[in-house]
Design a protein around this nucleic acid. Structure first.
Lengths: 229, 229
DNA sequence: ATCTATAAAAAGCACCTACATAATAATGTC
DNA sequence: GACATTATTATGTAGGTGCTTTTTATAGAT
Protein backbone atom coordinates (compact mmCIF):
# COMPACT_ATOMS: atom_id res chain seq x y z
CA UNK A 1 0.00 0.00 0.00
CA UNK A 2 2.40 2.69 1.21
CA UNK A 3 6.15 2.67 1.05
CA UNK A 4 8.05 4.97 3.37
CA UNK A 5 7.30 6.51 6.74
CA UNK A 6 6.73 9.81 4.99
CA UNK A 7 4.03 8.17 2.91
CA UNK A 8 2.44 6.85 6.06
CA UNK A 9 2.66 10.29 7.62
CA UNK A 10 1.10 11.89 4.56
CA UNK A 11 -1.60 9.23 4.48
CA UNK A 12 -2.56 10.05 8.06
CA UNK A 13 -2.31 13.77 7.35
CA UNK A 14 -4.69 13.28 4.44
CA UNK A 15 -7.12 11.44 6.70
CA UNK A 16 -6.97 14.33 9.13
CA UNK A 17 -7.57 16.69 6.23
CA UNK A 18 -10.72 14.99 5.02
CA UNK A 19 -12.09 14.59 8.51
CA UNK A 20 -11.70 10.83 8.75
CA UNK A 21 -10.46 11.78 12.19
CA UNK A 22 -11.75 14.83 13.98
CA UNK A 23 -10.03 16.75 16.77
CA UNK A 24 -9.93 14.59 19.89
CA UNK A 25 -10.42 11.32 18.02
CA UNK A 26 -8.39 8.24 18.82
CA UNK A 27 -6.32 6.54 16.13
CA UNK A 28 -6.03 2.78 15.81
CA UNK A 29 -3.02 1.18 17.43
CA UNK A 30 0.21 1.47 15.47
CA UNK A 31 0.08 -2.29 14.92
CA UNK A 32 -3.32 -2.13 13.24
CA UNK A 33 -2.38 0.82 11.05
CA UNK A 34 0.70 -1.12 10.03
CA UNK A 35 -1.47 -4.11 9.17
CA UNK A 36 -3.85 -1.97 7.15
CA UNK A 37 -1.09 -0.21 5.24
CA UNK A 38 0.95 -3.36 4.93
CA UNK A 39 4.09 -2.07 6.55
CA UNK A 40 6.04 -2.62 9.77
CA UNK A 41 4.91 -1.20 13.09
CA UNK A 42 8.21 0.66 13.33
CA UNK A 43 7.35 2.53 10.15
CA UNK A 44 4.02 3.66 11.56
CA UNK A 45 5.81 4.50 14.79
CA UNK A 46 8.26 6.70 12.91
CA UNK A 47 5.44 8.51 11.09
CA UNK A 48 3.40 9.00 14.25
CA UNK A 49 6.37 10.31 16.15
CA UNK A 50 7.00 12.91 13.48
CA UNK A 51 3.36 13.99 13.70
CA UNK A 52 3.68 14.13 17.47
CA UNK A 53 6.84 16.25 17.16
CA UNK A 54 4.97 18.60 14.85
CA UNK A 55 2.26 18.99 17.48
CA UNK A 56 -0.46 17.53 15.29
CA UNK A 57 -1.01 14.37 17.27
CA UNK A 58 -0.68 13.34 20.90
CA UNK A 59 0.62 9.95 21.98
CA UNK A 60 0.27 8.33 25.37
CA UNK A 61 1.57 4.97 26.44
CA UNK A 62 -1.24 2.56 26.91
CA UNK A 63 -3.71 5.32 26.03
CA UNK A 64 -2.97 5.40 22.33
CA UNK A 65 -2.70 8.16 19.76
CA UNK A 66 -5.13 11.07 19.54
CA UNK A 67 -5.66 13.92 17.14
CA UNK A 68 -4.87 17.08 19.08
CA UNK A 69 -8.15 18.64 20.18
CA UNK A 70 -7.10 22.12 19.04
CA UNK A 71 -4.76 22.46 16.06
CA UNK A 72 -1.73 24.59 16.81
CA UNK A 73 0.53 26.26 14.30
CA UNK A 74 4.03 25.33 15.32
CA UNK A 75 7.02 26.98 13.73
CA UNK A 76 10.69 27.12 14.45
CA UNK A 77 12.53 30.32 15.21
CA UNK A 78 16.25 30.36 14.55
CA UNK A 79 18.32 32.98 16.31
CA UNK A 80 21.90 33.02 15.08
CA UNK A 81 24.84 34.79 16.68
CA UNK A 82 24.30 38.47 15.95
CA UNK A 83 27.62 38.72 14.11
CA UNK A 84 26.60 35.86 11.82
CA UNK A 85 23.16 37.32 11.24
CA UNK A 86 24.69 40.62 10.17
CA UNK A 87 27.39 39.05 8.02
CA UNK A 88 24.86 36.75 6.36
CA UNK A 89 23.02 39.83 5.22
CA UNK A 90 26.21 41.03 3.59
CA UNK A 91 27.11 43.76 6.05
CA UNK A 92 30.31 44.35 7.89
CA UNK A 93 29.98 43.54 11.57
CA UNK A 94 31.19 45.59 14.48
CA UNK A 95 30.20 45.71 18.08
CA UNK A 96 30.61 48.33 20.73
CA UNK A 97 30.64 47.84 24.46
CA UNK A 98 28.58 50.55 26.10
CA UNK A 99 28.95 49.54 29.72
CA UNK A 100 29.81 46.61 31.95
CA UNK A 101 29.38 46.62 35.67
CA UNK A 102 28.62 44.39 38.62
CA UNK A 103 25.26 45.39 40.01
CA UNK A 104 22.47 44.15 42.19
CA UNK A 105 19.64 42.28 40.51
CA UNK A 106 16.51 44.21 39.70
CA UNK A 107 13.34 42.54 40.98
CA UNK A 108 12.57 41.45 37.40
CA UNK A 109 15.90 39.65 37.07
CA UNK A 110 15.69 38.14 40.54
CA UNK A 111 12.30 36.69 39.66
CA UNK A 112 13.51 35.35 36.38
CA UNK A 113 16.70 33.78 37.69
CA UNK A 114 15.25 32.60 40.99
CA UNK A 115 15.71 34.75 44.08
CA UNK A 116 18.46 32.52 45.49
CA UNK A 117 20.39 32.47 42.23
CA UNK A 118 20.52 36.16 41.42
CA UNK A 119 23.69 37.03 43.30
CA UNK A 120 27.00 37.91 41.62
CA UNK A 121 25.63 39.44 38.47
CA UNK A 122 27.25 41.34 35.66
CA UNK A 123 25.26 43.79 33.62
CA UNK A 124 26.43 44.57 30.11
CA UNK A 125 25.12 46.92 27.50
CA UNK A 126 26.39 46.56 23.95
CA UNK A 127 25.56 47.75 20.50
CA UNK A 128 25.91 45.61 17.38
CA UNK A 129 26.51 47.47 14.14
CA UNK A 130 25.99 46.53 10.51
CA UNK A 131 28.12 48.59 8.12
CA UNK A 132 28.66 51.00 11.01
CA UNK A 133 24.96 51.57 11.42
CA UNK A 134 23.17 50.47 14.61
CA UNK A 135 21.52 47.08 14.25
CA UNK A 136 20.59 45.85 17.70
CA UNK A 137 21.18 47.04 21.22
CA UNK A 138 21.47 44.46 23.96
CA UNK A 139 21.05 44.81 27.68
CA UNK A 140 22.38 41.64 29.26
CA UNK A 141 22.62 40.12 32.71
CA UNK A 142 25.11 37.34 33.31
CA UNK A 143 25.23 35.04 36.31
CA UNK A 144 28.82 34.86 37.47
CA UNK A 145 27.87 31.97 39.72
CA UNK A 146 27.07 29.91 36.65
CA UNK A 147 29.77 31.40 34.38
CA UNK A 148 32.61 32.54 36.64
CA UNK A 149 35.16 32.52 33.80
CA UNK A 150 33.23 35.26 32.04
CA UNK A 151 35.12 37.90 34.02
CA UNK A 152 38.23 37.05 31.99
CA UNK A 153 36.57 37.60 28.61
CA UNK A 154 37.81 40.60 26.65
CA UNK A 155 34.59 42.17 25.52
CA UNK A 156 36.33 44.47 23.07
CA UNK A 157 37.47 41.40 21.13
CA UNK A 158 34.34 39.25 21.22
CA UNK A 159 30.76 40.15 22.07
CA UNK A 160 29.15 38.66 25.15
CA UNK A 161 26.56 37.24 22.80
CA UNK A 162 29.07 35.30 20.73
CA UNK A 163 31.24 34.19 23.62
CA UNK A 164 28.30 32.81 25.56
CA UNK A 165 26.66 31.05 22.62
CA UNK A 166 29.95 29.46 21.60
CA UNK A 167 31.22 28.57 25.06
CA UNK A 168 28.13 27.96 27.13
CA UNK A 169 25.71 25.54 25.52
CA UNK A 170 22.47 25.68 27.42
CA UNK A 171 19.89 23.09 28.24
CA UNK A 172 16.92 25.42 28.21
CA UNK A 173 16.04 28.73 26.56
CA UNK A 174 12.99 30.94 26.97
CA UNK A 175 12.24 33.59 24.40
CA UNK A 176 9.76 36.43 24.61
CA UNK A 177 8.96 38.77 21.77
CA UNK A 178 7.27 42.12 22.13
CA UNK A 179 6.96 45.53 20.51
CA UNK A 180 7.91 48.77 22.21
CA UNK A 181 8.22 52.39 21.31
CA UNK A 182 11.78 53.43 21.61
CA UNK A 183 12.90 55.03 24.86
CA UNK A 184 15.46 57.74 25.39
CA UNK A 185 18.76 55.93 25.83
CA UNK A 186 18.17 53.07 23.44
CA UNK A 187 16.94 55.56 20.87
CA UNK A 188 20.17 57.50 21.14
CA UNK A 189 22.33 54.43 20.60
CA UNK A 190 20.15 53.05 17.83
CA UNK A 191 19.96 56.48 16.22
CA UNK A 192 16.24 55.97 15.90
CA UNK A 193 13.50 58.55 16.03
CA UNK A 194 11.77 58.97 19.35
CA UNK A 195 8.50 57.04 19.27
CA UNK A 196 9.52 54.54 16.58
CA UNK A 197 8.38 50.93 17.06
CA UNK A 198 11.06 48.37 17.83
CA UNK A 199 10.98 44.63 18.06
CA UNK A 200 12.32 43.44 21.39
CA UNK A 201 13.55 39.90 21.98
CA UNK A 202 14.14 38.72 25.52
CA UNK A 203 16.06 35.51 26.01
CA UNK A 204 16.97 33.62 29.15
CA UNK A 205 19.24 30.58 28.98
CA UNK A 206 19.83 27.92 31.61
CA UNK A 207 22.17 25.05 32.18
CA UNK A 208 20.13 22.55 34.16
CA UNK A 209 18.61 24.78 36.85
CA UNK A 210 21.26 27.45 36.79
CA UNK A 211 20.64 30.67 34.90
CA UNK A 212 23.36 31.63 32.44
CA UNK A 213 22.19 34.90 31.02
CA UNK A 214 19.21 37.09 30.28
CA UNK A 215 19.25 39.49 27.33
CA UNK A 216 16.90 42.17 26.21
CA UNK A 217 17.68 42.82 22.55
CA UNK A 218 16.16 45.96 21.09
CA UNK A 219 16.26 46.01 17.30
CA UNK A 220 16.32 48.98 14.98
CA UNK A 221 12.91 49.97 13.64
CA UNK A 222 11.97 47.97 10.56
CA UNK A 223 13.57 44.74 11.75
CA UNK A 224 11.73 41.56 10.73
CA UNK A 225 11.97 38.17 12.33
CA UNK A 226 11.40 35.32 9.89
CA UNK A 227 10.63 31.71 10.68
CA UNK A 228 10.30 28.66 8.52
CA UNK A 229 8.14 25.67 9.29
CA UNK B 1 29.06 2.04 28.41
CA UNK B 2 25.89 3.96 27.54
CA UNK B 3 22.39 2.65 27.48
CA UNK B 4 19.73 4.63 25.64
CA UNK B 5 19.82 7.02 22.70
CA UNK B 6 19.30 9.88 25.12
CA UNK B 7 22.45 8.84 26.94
CA UNK B 8 24.31 8.81 23.65
CA UNK B 9 22.89 12.23 22.81
CA UNK B 10 23.90 13.62 26.19
CA UNK B 11 27.35 12.05 25.87
CA UNK B 12 27.88 13.86 22.57
CA UNK B 13 26.41 17.07 23.97
CA UNK B 14 28.89 16.85 26.84
CA UNK B 15 31.74 16.40 24.37
CA UNK B 16 30.56 19.48 22.52
CA UNK B 17 30.42 21.37 25.82
CA UNK B 18 33.98 20.58 26.83
CA UNK B 19 35.33 21.32 23.38
CA UNK B 20 36.19 17.76 22.43
CA UNK B 21 34.64 18.88 19.17
CA UNK B 22 34.81 22.47 18.02
CA UNK B 23 32.47 24.20 15.58
CA UNK B 24 32.98 22.76 12.09
CA UNK B 25 34.59 19.54 13.34
CA UNK B 26 33.67 16.19 11.88
CA UNK B 27 32.35 13.44 14.10
CA UNK B 28 33.34 9.81 13.65
CA UNK B 29 30.97 7.67 11.64
CA UNK B 30 27.90 6.46 13.47
CA UNK B 31 29.30 2.94 13.29
CA UNK B 32 32.49 3.88 15.10
CA UNK B 33 30.69 5.85 17.79
CA UNK B 34 28.46 2.81 18.26
CA UNK B 35 31.52 0.62 18.60
CA UNK B 36 33.10 2.98 21.10
CA UNK B 37 29.95 3.30 23.20
CA UNK B 38 29.10 -0.36 22.79
CA UNK B 39 25.66 0.12 21.31
CA UNK B 40 23.94 -0.36 17.96
CA UNK B 41 24.43 2.00 15.04
CA UNK B 42 20.70 2.69 15.06
CA UNK B 43 20.98 4.02 18.59
CA UNK B 44 23.70 6.45 17.58
CA UNK B 45 21.64 7.32 14.51
CA UNK B 46 18.66 8.13 16.70
CA UNK B 47 20.77 10.35 18.95
CA UNK B 48 22.43 12.12 16.04
CA UNK B 49 19.14 12.76 14.32
CA UNK B 50 17.77 14.39 17.44
CA UNK B 51 20.84 16.62 17.56
CA UNK B 52 20.37 17.42 13.89
CA UNK B 53 16.71 18.26 14.49
CA UNK B 54 17.77 20.57 17.29
CA UNK B 55 20.12 22.36 14.89
CA UNK B 56 23.24 21.45 16.85
CA UNK B 57 24.73 19.12 14.30
CA UNK B 58 24.66 18.79 10.53
CA UNK B 59 24.51 15.46 8.72
CA UNK B 60 25.28 14.76 5.10
CA UNK B 61 25.07 11.46 3.32
CA UNK B 62 28.49 10.21 2.54
CA UNK B 63 29.97 13.40 3.98
CA UNK B 64 29.39 12.51 7.61
CA UNK B 65 28.29 14.44 10.69
CA UNK B 66 29.65 17.87 11.60
CA UNK B 67 29.27 20.19 14.53
CA UNK B 68 27.44 23.22 13.17
CA UNK B 69 30.02 25.90 12.44
CA UNK B 70 27.90 28.61 14.03
CA UNK B 71 25.67 27.66 16.95
CA UNK B 72 22.07 28.72 16.40
CA UNK B 73 19.45 29.19 19.07
CA UNK B 74 16.44 27.30 17.87
CA UNK B 75 13.11 27.65 19.59
CA UNK B 76 9.57 26.66 18.83
CA UNK B 77 6.76 29.11 18.44
CA UNK B 78 3.25 27.84 19.01
CA UNK B 79 0.39 29.82 17.53
CA UNK B 80 -2.99 28.50 18.65
CA UNK B 81 -6.36 29.38 17.22
CA UNK B 82 -7.05 32.91 18.42
CA UNK B 83 -10.23 31.81 20.19
CA UNK B 84 -8.29 29.18 22.13
CA UNK B 85 -5.51 31.62 22.97
CA UNK B 86 -8.03 34.06 24.40
CA UNK B 87 -10.03 31.42 26.27
CA UNK B 88 -6.84 29.89 27.69
CA UNK B 89 -6.11 33.24 29.26
CA UNK B 90 -9.48 33.10 30.95
CA UNK B 91 -11.28 35.68 28.84
CA UNK B 92 -14.54 35.43 27.01
CA UNK B 93 -14.02 35.24 23.27
CA UNK B 94 -15.89 37.13 20.61
CA UNK B 95 -15.06 38.03 17.08
CA UNK B 96 -16.34 40.69 14.77
CA UNK B 97 -16.28 40.70 11.00
CA UNK B 98 -15.26 44.12 9.78
CA UNK B 99 -15.33 43.52 6.05
CA UNK B 100 -15.22 40.78 3.44
CA UNK B 101 -14.90 41.42 -0.24
CA UNK B 102 -13.50 39.97 -3.42
CA UNK B 103 -10.68 42.21 -4.60
CA UNK B 104 -7.66 42.24 -6.83
CA UNK B 105 -4.36 41.21 -5.32
CA UNK B 106 -2.02 43.93 -4.20
CA UNK B 107 1.49 43.59 -5.61
CA UNK B 108 2.65 42.36 -2.18
CA UNK B 109 0.12 39.53 -2.16
CA UNK B 110 0.74 38.65 -5.78
CA UNK B 111 4.44 38.30 -5.02
CA UNK B 112 3.78 36.21 -1.98
CA UNK B 113 1.28 33.86 -3.55
CA UNK B 114 2.98 33.71 -6.92
CA UNK B 115 1.78 35.92 -9.74
CA UNK B 116 -0.12 33.11 -11.48
CA UNK B 117 -1.87 32.02 -8.30
CA UNK B 118 -3.18 35.31 -7.04
CA UNK B 119 -6.50 35.30 -8.86
CA UNK B 120 -9.88 34.83 -7.19
CA UNK B 121 -9.04 36.30 -3.83
CA UNK B 122 -11.14 37.17 -0.84
CA UNK B 123 -10.03 39.87 1.54
CA UNK B 124 -11.33 39.75 5.09
CA UNK B 125 -10.83 42.05 8.02
CA UNK B 126 -11.84 40.84 11.45
CA UNK B 127 -11.38 41.78 15.05
CA UNK B 128 -10.96 39.26 17.86
CA UNK B 129 -12.09 40.40 21.30
CA UNK B 130 -11.20 39.20 24.79
CA UNK B 131 -13.86 40.12 27.36
CA UNK B 132 -15.21 42.57 24.78
CA UNK B 133 -11.90 44.38 24.54
CA UNK B 134 -9.90 44.35 21.30
CA UNK B 135 -7.22 41.68 21.26
CA UNK B 136 -6.00 41.29 17.72
CA UNK B 137 -7.02 42.65 14.36
CA UNK B 138 -6.50 40.50 11.31
CA UNK B 139 -6.29 41.44 7.67
CA UNK B 140 -6.53 38.25 5.66
CA UNK B 141 -6.32 37.19 2.05
CA UNK B 142 -7.77 33.84 1.04
CA UNK B 143 -7.17 32.05 -2.23
CA UNK B 144 -10.52 30.84 -3.49
CA UNK B 145 -8.72 28.74 -6.08
CA UNK B 146 -7.22 26.68 -3.27
CA UNK B 147 -10.20 26.89 -0.90
CA UNK B 148 -13.33 27.29 -3.05
CA UNK B 149 -15.65 26.08 -0.30
CA UNK B 150 -14.70 29.05 1.83
CA UNK B 151 -17.39 31.15 0.14
CA UNK B 152 -20.01 29.08 1.99
CA UNK B 153 -18.57 29.70 5.44
CA UNK B 154 -20.71 31.84 7.74
CA UNK B 155 -18.14 34.23 9.15
CA UNK B 156 -20.53 35.48 11.81
CA UNK B 157 -20.53 31.98 13.31
CA UNK B 158 -16.90 31.03 13.05
CA UNK B 159 -13.83 33.17 12.41
CA UNK B 160 -11.87 32.70 9.20
CA UNK B 161 -8.91 31.91 11.42
CA UNK B 162 -10.61 29.02 13.17
CA UNK B 163 -12.34 27.65 10.08
CA UNK B 164 -9.14 27.57 8.08
CA UNK B 165 -6.97 26.10 10.81
CA UNK B 166 -9.53 23.38 11.53
CA UNK B 167 -10.49 22.61 7.95
CA UNK B 168 -7.41 23.35 5.90
CA UNK B 169 -4.29 21.71 7.29
CA UNK B 170 -1.31 23.12 5.49
CA UNK B 171 1.93 21.64 4.39
CA UNK B 172 3.98 24.79 4.79
CA UNK B 173 3.76 27.94 6.87
CA UNK B 174 5.90 31.06 6.82
CA UNK B 175 5.79 33.45 9.75
CA UNK B 176 7.18 36.95 9.93
CA UNK B 177 7.23 39.05 13.06
CA UNK B 178 7.71 42.78 13.14
CA UNK B 179 6.89 45.85 15.19
CA UNK B 180 4.89 48.79 13.90
CA UNK B 181 3.42 51.97 15.23
CA UNK B 182 -0.29 51.79 14.97
CA UNK B 183 -1.94 53.37 11.96
CA UNK B 184 -5.27 55.10 11.68
CA UNK B 185 -7.79 52.38 10.94
CA UNK B 186 -6.22 49.58 12.97
CA UNK B 187 -5.84 51.99 15.85
CA UNK B 188 -9.53 52.77 15.77
CA UNK B 189 -10.56 49.11 15.87
CA UNK B 190 -7.96 48.17 18.49
CA UNK B 191 -8.89 51.25 20.51
CA UNK B 192 -5.21 51.97 20.87
CA UNK B 193 -3.50 55.30 21.12
CA UNK B 194 -2.07 56.69 17.92
CA UNK B 195 1.66 55.96 17.81
CA UNK B 196 1.59 52.96 20.16
CA UNK B 197 3.85 50.02 19.26
CA UNK B 198 2.14 46.83 18.13
CA UNK B 199 3.47 43.38 17.43
CA UNK B 200 2.52 42.24 13.94
CA UNK B 201 2.52 38.61 12.88
CA UNK B 202 2.27 37.75 9.21
CA UNK B 203 1.53 34.18 8.28
CA UNK B 204 1.22 32.53 4.91
CA UNK B 205 0.09 28.93 4.63
CA UNK B 206 0.35 26.58 1.67
CA UNK B 207 -0.90 23.19 0.67
CA UNK B 208 1.81 21.79 -1.58
CA UNK B 209 2.46 24.73 -3.89
CA UNK B 210 -0.93 26.33 -3.57
CA UNK B 211 -1.39 29.30 -1.28
CA UNK B 212 -4.22 28.98 1.22
CA UNK B 213 -4.15 32.24 3.08
CA UNK B 214 -2.05 35.16 4.15
CA UNK B 215 -2.83 37.02 7.39
CA UNK B 216 -1.47 40.16 8.89
CA UNK B 217 -2.35 40.03 12.59
CA UNK B 218 -1.92 43.30 14.47
CA UNK B 219 -1.98 42.83 18.23
CA UNK B 220 -2.95 45.28 20.90
CA UNK B 221 -0.05 47.17 22.42
CA UNK B 222 1.57 45.22 25.24
CA UNK B 223 1.12 41.82 23.63
CA UNK B 224 3.91 39.34 24.29
CA UNK B 225 4.77 36.28 22.29
CA UNK B 226 6.31 33.50 24.36
CA UNK B 227 8.21 30.49 23.13
CA UNK B 228 9.57 27.44 24.90
CA UNK B 229 12.53 25.41 23.80
C1' DA C 1 -17.24 2.36 48.98
C1' DT C 2 -12.31 3.23 48.97
C1' DC C 3 -7.94 2.31 48.65
C1' DT C 4 -4.29 -0.97 46.94
C1' DA C 5 -2.01 -4.31 44.43
C1' DT C 6 -1.84 -6.54 40.11
C1' DA C 7 -2.48 -7.41 35.19
C1' DA C 8 -2.73 -5.94 30.66
C1' DA C 9 -2.25 -2.81 26.83
C1' DA C 10 -0.02 0.39 23.83
C1' DA C 11 3.75 3.21 22.90
C1' DG C 12 8.82 3.33 23.39
C1' DC C 13 13.26 1.47 22.84
C1' DA C 14 17.39 -1.43 21.55
C1' DC C 15 19.39 -4.21 18.36
C1' DC C 16 19.92 -6.50 14.03
C1' DT C 17 19.97 -7.16 8.88
C1' DA C 18 19.49 -5.63 4.45
C1' DC C 19 19.02 -2.33 1.17
C1' DA C 20 18.37 2.74 -0.76
C1' DT C 21 20.13 7.21 -1.60
C1' DA C 22 23.09 10.77 -2.31
C1' DA C 23 27.45 12.87 -2.26
C1' DT C 24 32.08 12.38 -2.90
C1' DA C 25 36.27 10.33 -4.79
C1' DA C 26 38.45 7.84 -8.26
C1' DT C 27 38.81 6.62 -12.84
C1' DG C 28 38.46 6.74 -17.69
C1' DT C 29 37.80 9.28 -22.09
C1' DC C 30 38.22 12.86 -25.25
C1' DG D 1 43.07 19.67 -18.55
C1' DA D 2 37.95 19.29 -18.73
C1' DC D 3 34.30 16.44 -18.49
C1' DA D 4 31.63 12.22 -18.07
C1' DT D 5 31.33 7.71 -15.84
C1' DT D 6 31.76 4.55 -12.16
C1' DA D 7 32.82 3.04 -7.50
C1' DT D 8 32.77 3.94 -2.78
C1' DT D 9 31.04 5.48 1.48
C1' DA D 10 28.23 7.30 5.30
C1' DT D 11 23.76 8.39 6.31
C1' DG D 12 18.81 7.12 5.64
C1' DT D 13 15.17 3.82 5.74
C1' DA D 14 12.28 -0.63 6.06
C1' DG D 15 11.43 -4.64 8.30
C1' DG D 16 11.65 -7.79 12.14
C1' DT D 17 12.20 -9.48 17.15
C1' DG D 18 11.98 -9.01 21.77
C1' DC D 19 11.87 -6.44 25.70
C1' DT D 20 10.73 -2.05 28.76
C1' DT D 21 7.96 1.55 30.56
C1' DT D 22 4.03 3.94 31.58
C1' DT D 23 -0.69 4.25 32.28
C1' DT D 24 -5.07 2.42 32.56
C1' DA D 25 -8.23 -1.07 34.04
C1' DT D 26 -9.43 -4.61 37.00
C1' DA D 27 -9.59 -7.48 40.92
C1' DG D 28 -8.77 -7.88 45.71
C1' DA D 29 -8.53 -6.40 50.51
C1' DT D 30 -10.04 -3.53 54.21
Amino acid sequence: MSRGWKDVRDHIKRQILNSTYKPGDKFPRDKDIALELNCARSTVHRAMRSLADAGIVERRRKGGTFLKPEPVTRTTLSIPITRVEIEDRGYEYRHFLVSAKATKATPAIATRFGADKASRLLQIQALHLADNRPYVMEDRWISLDTVPEFVDVDLTQISANEWLVCNRPYSRCDVQISAHTITGEAGKFLEAAEGAATLVLERTTWIDDNPITHVTATHTPGYRLVTKG
